[in-house]
Amino acid sequence: MHNLLSMNLKRAMTVALVVGPILALVSVDVEAARGGGRGGGGGGVRTPRANIGGGSHDFNRGNVNQRDVNVNRDVNINRNVDVDVDRHWGYGGVGVGAAVAVGTAVAVGAVVSTLPPSCNTFVADGVTYQNCGGTYYAPRYDGPNVVYEVVSPPSGWNQ
């Protein structure tokens, strides 16, 4: 199990995640990453700050953009955390041109804003998880937005 996972992580090192500003589109498909480098999203959507003063209220760019989410991977997050749009429809679609391929090899630590279809809810140790075809997600707040982080299968749930 451990070996398999570290192999996945190693492979994931070459995979750049481009999390879009609105839909947080995640490109984790190896083929897409090979073809397009960081994916078609490039720099992503550009947004203004929401406040005039100082740098302290401004976190849409710069430090956040290059935030390392996982030590093993190069994760480029260019997310506007407070443009509040309906993510189920068009806003997400026009957000970023990146490949929308929630592929087979979803690495632990990856973050998506919407779950794939057909997930089963289950509770372990008081935490609600989603099992989506064998990939386990837990809800988190990323800034003010609810996202789902891929987690290791909870103990006692190893298939």
Binding site: A50, F59, V81, D82, D142
Partner: peptide
């Protein structure tokens, strides 16, 4: 990373 727009 939670902002209040116009908080200034």
């Amino acid at each position: 990373r939670i902002s209040l727009p116009v908080a200034d």
